[in-house]
Design a protein around this nucleic acid. Structure first.
Lengths: 150, 150
DNA sequence: CTACACCTTCCATCCGGCTGGAATGTCAAG
DNA sequence: CTTGACATTCCAGCCGGATGGAAGGTGTAG
């Protein structure tokens, strides 16, 4: 498939896909005779894996190492294994923190809800927040396959 | 207390504390006659809250809005409440995703561990990863109060 | 033919979140 | 008094992770 289709199917922009290739996160795909990139099904999996791993807080560089390990079935390096184990520990901590902060936020939310919502004095700020929220959701939540596709 | 002590007690650098003040995340503290910032105990709480909230994926701008809500007991804006509720939903999704990816990574880790660790061929990369790991831990995990304090 | 969607590369820019460093001030200890 | 640790402001730069846009090639449909 071409880059556009891959983008549509993963929710990752063509721009970003090329960028991932540049930084070594995606292997250079075959090219059609005209020079267009030609991806196989595996690229879809790989991109989804990247998105998920990214959502857990791994950097793109770290993800690249993991993918190397995954694809070669080879230990590129002892440190990759350590990285993974460390990250697992981090994840457990993070999950716990999330739960705790979730509760904290829940309290605040309740309070917010009990107060008069008509006193919005700063529409600019509000707008900013609304946008930020959208962005955050878009960038962090793993898209199954459907997406608002401009 | 002065900025240095606050930094030591929270694990947030003095530099970063001033930066937070600049962007409105921390209220400008009192000043000693000599101009030095003079913080109260609440600053410690506030910084810890910021770190936790940040660990859940909120941006600093979003955190600023929440803190405003928290401190004024006022609904700055309807959208802040929406932000919080949305974020709670996000958190639940995120926690689930983390668990799932955690398992995925655990599998990879096991695989990594079963393979020969002696074949490390790319020390530069390894170094990078090691550093990245340190950074990641430092920046994301909420410090209780102890920390490796350069 | 030409319009149009789609692809290519390349280079610049943006954003969030810091961080470094210069130039200067304050103050307690030796 | 000077030295040293700490503080101040201000401005520049960095990193990760993209994103924008120019300038151009391709290929099918009308």
């Amino acid at each position: 498939m071409r880059i556009g289709e891959l983008a549509a199917r993963t929710g990752v922009s063509a721009k970003t896909i090329r960028y991932y290739e540049d930084i070594g996160l995606l292997p250079p795909p075959e090219r059609e005779p005209n020079g267009y990139r030609d991806y196989g099904e595996d690229a879809v999996d790989r991109l989804r894996f990247i998105r998920d791993a990214q959502a857990t807080g791994l950097t793109l560089t770290e993800i690249a190492s993991i993918l190397e390990l995954r694809e070669e079935g080879q230990p590129t390096c002892e440190h990759v294994a350590e990285l993974l184990e460390q990250h697992l520990k981090d994840l457990d901590v993070q999950i716990a923190t999330l739960q705790a902060t979730r509760d904290h936020l829940a309290t605040l939310t309740e309070r917010a809800r009990r107060l008069d919502p008509a006193t919005c004095t700063d529409p600019v700020r509000c707008q900013t927040i609304a946008e930020a929220t959208d962005l955050r959701v878009a960038r962090r939540v793993a898209q199954p396959q459907a997406h608002r596709h401009s």
